[in-house]
Amino acid sequence: VGTFRHDRLSVGLALGPAGERAYLRESTGDVIAVTPTNDDDPGGTSGSGNETEDGNETRGGNESGDGTRADRADDADGSDPDFSPRVDAPDWRASLADVIGEPAAGTEPVERREAEPIAADGAGAYVGSGSLVIAAREGDVDWAVAVDGDVRGLWCGDAGGPDGVVVAAADAVVALAPDGSRRWRRESGAGSALVVDGDLVLLREGDDLLALDLVDGAEAWRTGIDGGGPPPTVTGDRVAAVSRGTLRVLDRDSGEPLWRSGIAPGRDRSRSLVVGAERGYFVDRDGDAVAVGSEDSGGGRAWTRRLETRSSTPVDGWIDGETVAFAFDTGEFVWLQRYDEDPGLL
């Protein structure tokens, strides 16, 4: 989509449903909305100006850490420097100070806010702080609603589902409408082991995986998966769940089991897991990309590929036609052929 250059410490990121707008939670507690732009687009915000500390925009300059203008300077020999620190202007900035106040004495605000979730839908951003869910819209706090217990996680649906936010609190899952009104509440110890996909909320309860309707909380289906584990992942019309070292793949709409494998990613690698008709793909703890087959097709590893990335920590995975792709916390992306016995980087 594009890039956005920001010179302040951010401790949280959420994307809107179409991925065209992003929301950052700054260490100061503010929330900003940004529209990444293509560096090759002369009409983008990258050349239009930047924001100063008082929220005003400057034209043709950039912002330094102290809020003063930091114009590009030439080297001593008169040539341009190799790197020019460019700072882009956000679409808007919302201060949460009047709602959340200042950090308690002896606490570190950055560490506190790193543990506070952020999510986004088509209406704006949602932030959790203590027992509050706060909606930030167009530069202002639109509302703040208290839920039962501290907010442990926030999730919004994609472009295929309704706006609103799902909240994981201490002993319950709560769904809020875009205006902050409560849609439904369900007693649950699911914690953060849930995911929102379109119009469904997928969560674990005991040995079962459940699908709930996002709007009314009605149970769409329930399937036994033999134990707890990390949150499920969704790839198209398939849901993948890992329990006790076994990968189970279910039909998203009915919960019907499709296939399983005795090889599965560890809990800290499950975010990279994506599944196809009879194969699953993930990055293991050694930093290798792994393809596993279903038990019906012989099971075991179909292939393993050592990845030459700076980090072995994946943050996402997806299937792209005949390739599988992984994103890493360093911003690196890797694409591999899905079916070759000796797959290579594309």
Rank of each mutant, 00 (worst) to 15 (best):
residue 112 R to P: 00
residue 132 L to K: 13
residue 157 G to Q: 08
residue 123 A to P: 00
residue 115 A to Q: 04
residue 112 R to C: 02
residue 99 V to K: 11
residue 111 E to T: 13
residue 108 E to Q: 15
residue 112 R to G: 03
residue 117 P to T: 04
residue 113 R to Q: 09
residue 114 E to H: 03
residue 101 G to Q: 12
residue 106 G to A: 15
residue 119 A to T: 01
residue 137 R to M: 05
residue 148 D to K: 10
residue 156 C to S: 08
residue 105 A to N: 04
residue 115 A to D: 14
residue 130 G to C: 11
residue 123 A to K: 01
residue 126 Y to W: 15
residue 132 L to V: 06
residue 156 C to I: 00
residue 138 E to V: 12
residue 137 R to N: 07
residue 113 R to D: 08
residue 139 G to L: 09
residue 101 G to D: 09
residue 119 A to V: 01
residue 122 G to I: 07
residue 119 A to H: 04
residue 142 D to T: 07
residue 106 G to Q: 14
residue 134 I to K: 14
residue 116 E to A: 13
residue 155 W to P: 00
residue 153 G to A: 10
residue 148 D to N: 08
residue 104 A to C: 04
residue 126 Y to A: 00
residue 149 G to A: 05
residue 154 L to F: 07
residue 131 S to C: 13
residue 155 W to D: 12
residue 105 A to Q: 13
residue 103 P to T: 02
residue 130 G to Y: 05
residue 127 V to R: 12
residue 130 G to K: 00
residue 147 V to L: 12
residue 105 A to M: 06
residue 124 G to A: 12
residue 107 T to L: 13
residue 132 L to I: 01
residue 110 V to R: 11
residue 100 I to P: 10
residue 121 D to P: 10
residue 142 D to V: 11
residue 144 A to I: 06
residue 156 C to Y: 00
residue 130 G to T: 02
residue 113 R to K: 08
residue 141 V to I: 06
residue 152 R to P: 07
residue 130 G to W: 04
residue 157 G to W: 09
residue 133 V to Y: 10
residue 146 A to P: 08
residue 151 V to G: 00
residue 122 G to H: 03
residue 107 T to P: 10
residue 157 G to H: 05
residue 127 V to Q: 07
residue 139 G to T: 04
residue 128 G to F: 07
residue 158 D to W: 04
residue 115 A to N: 09
residue 154 L to A: 07
residue 132 L to H: 13
residue 140 D to P: 01
residue 146 A to S: 10
residue 113 R to N: 10
residue 123 A to M: 01
residue 138 E to C: 03
residue 146 A to I: 03
residue 159 A to S: 12
residue 153 G to T: 03
residue 131 S to I: 11
residue 122 G to K: 08
residue 114 E to D: 15
residue 107 T to E: 05
residue 104 A to H: 09
residue 127 V to P: 02
residue 114 E to I: 08
residue 117 P to D: 02
residue 107 T to W: 02
residue 127 V to T: 15
residue 154 L to H: 14
residue 140 D to L: 06
residue 138 E to G: 15
residue 127 V to Y: 11
residue 155 W to F: 12
residue 153 G to R: 12
residue 142 D to N: 11
residue 140 D to M: 10
residue 127 V to H: 04
residue 110 V to N: 02
residue 123 A to T: 06
residue 154 L to P: 05
residue 136 A to H: 03
residue 159 A to E: 04
residue 151 V to I: 03
residue 132 L to Y: 11
residue 155 W to A: 11
residue 124 G to C: 09
residue 123 A to W: 01
residue 148 D to H: 06
residue 129 S to G: 09
residue 133 V to I: 10
residue 131 S to Q: 10
residue 108 E to I: 10
residue 118 I to Q: 03
residue 115 A to P: 05
residue 105 A to V: 08
residue 103 P to M: 03
residue 106 G to C: 11
residue 130 G to F: 09
residue 158 D to N: 15
residue 100 I to K: 00
residue 148 D to C: 14
residue 134 I to C: 02
residue 115 A to Y: 05
residue 151 V to M: 02
residue 156 C to A: 13
residue 115 A to E: 15
residue 144 A to V: 01
residue 107 T to Q: 09
residue 155 W to G: 15
